[in-house]
């Protein structure tokens, strides 16, 4: 049990995928302008990563590894994630229209995002078993949500600040992200897997 907890904390905070591994940066900057949007995005990413990396794990260990096709891993995973997101979008649209209103556009943004591809890849590279892979992906989703919500809260405050003209908008957001990443570096070495 502790092992899984450690894995979760490691994925969410210590090895935060956005702030220490720099994955998923495009949505991290694109959707962190307002807190509401970032909460929706964080939830959508968590859901997609968790389920799609479970799917990817199954395909990897049932087909790719037994038939020595590991050279195709990246291509197959892209295919899996993208089609799965499409499917998920349709199901949500039909049965949970409110959730769809909240997630709608973000879901399709995730389809080709590097974090949604990176987490399943890291799962199989680290040789996790199914449950470990599930915990790791859920943790990384939560880590992403944490990072984007922190960033959005900071950027909402930043709107009211007197920023030098040349740094307005994305410029100062990059500096801010750098500082956030530096502060997350403080956790590094706490857990080594």
């Amino acid at each position: 049990m502790t092992e899984y907890l450690v894995l979760f904390v490691s994925a969410a905070i210590v090895n935060n995928y956005v702030l220490t591994r720099f994955l998923g940066l495009c949505i991290f900057f694109g959707v962190s302008k307002s807190l509401d949007a970032s909460i929706g995005m964080g939830m959508a990413v968590t859901a997609v990563i968790t389920v799609s990396s479970a799917l990817a794990w199954l395909v990897y260990y049932l087909f790719l590894l037994p038939y020595q096709l590991t050279s195709l891993t990246i291509v197959i995973f892209v295919l899996l994630v993208a089609s799965f997101v499409q499917l998920l979008e349709m199901v949500i649209k039909k049965y949970m229209p409110n959730l769809h209103k909240m997630w709608g556009i973000y879901l399709l943004l995730i389809a080709t995002n590097c974090i949604a591809l990176g987490v399943p890849l890291i799962n199989v590279e680290s040789g996790f078993n199914f449950l470990e892979a599930l915990v790791n992906s859920f943790g990384s989703g939560v880590g992403f949500a944490l990072a984007i919500i922190l960033m959005a809260s900071l950027r909402e405050k930043l709107k009211l600040a007197d920023v030098p003209k040349s740094l307005e908008g994305l410029g100062v957001a990059f500096i801010l992200a750098g500082m956030l990443a530096l502060s997350f570096c403080g956790f590094s070495g706490m857990i080594s897997l």
Binding site: L69, L72, I76, L79, L80
Partner: peptide, 8 residues
Amino acid sequence: MVALMGVI
């Protein structure tokens, strides 16, 4: 390879 990609 072709078979797997095709099937998926």
